[in-house]
Amino acid sequence: MRLTLHIWRQKGPKEPGRMVHYEARNANPDMSFLEMLDVLNEELTLKGEDPVAFDSDCREGICGMCGFMINGVAHGPRRGTTVCQLHMRKFKDGDVLYIEPWRARAFPVIKDLAVNRTAFDRIIAAGGYISVPAGSAPDGNTILIPKPVAEQAMDAAACIGCGACVAACPNASAALFTGAKIAHLGLLPQGQPERDQRVLKMVAHSTLEQFGSCTNIGECEAVCPKEIKLEVIARMNRDFIKAS
C-alpha cells in the first residue's frame, strides 16, 4: 500500500517545527505502524536525510515508550491499542496521515515525535508508592484481599504511563494518570496508611508540573490504550476532598 504522510519535524526543543510531507510507498498491511516508519527511516537514511525521531522500546504495548498523534488521535484509530501494536491493515491504500508529537506544556518536544515525559516520574515520586523498605514485609497471605478488589486495583494499575491522556485532553490534565495510581494504591489495604498524604502530595505536584485541571471531558478515557476508566478520577477527587 501507498500512504501520504505529513510528519512533524523539529530539530530540538528550542527550534521551530513544521510538517514535512513524505510518501510511504512500501507499506504492507501486516506491518505495525512503527515498522512502516522504520522502513521510511531506512529510505531517508539511504538518501542522506535525517531519519524521523520517535520513541519505542517493547513494541508490545506495555512499556509506554511509544506514542504520537495520528490524524489528531493519540495512538491512532484503534481503541485500546498503542501505536506499536497498531497495524497497517487498519488503514487504506492512499490514506493521508498527519503525525504529530504529544502536545502539552509539561511534555516539551525533544526532537520530532519524541517528547520529555519526566514530569510523570516526578508525580509518582511525590507520593505514588507505599513506604515499605526491603525486608520489612509480613507474609503475603496475612493481608487478605477479596478477588474483586484485587481485580479493580489491577484495572487501575494497568496504566503504562504513555501520556496519551495528557495529549488528548484539551486542558493537558494528568488526572487520569494520577488518578490511576491513587486508585490502585487506595483500593488496597496496604495503601491505607498513606492514603490522605498520597493524594494531597500527588495532586499538588501535578499542578506544579504545569498540567491543567480536569473538567470531566473524557477524551483521556477514549484514547487510553489500557482503557483506564474515568472512575479513577472520581475516586481521586473523593479522596482529595476527604483528605483536605
Partner: peptide
Amino acid sequence: QCVAQGVP
C-alpha cells in the same frame, strides 16, 4: 515484599 508494596 511485593505484596506489601501493593503489587495486585
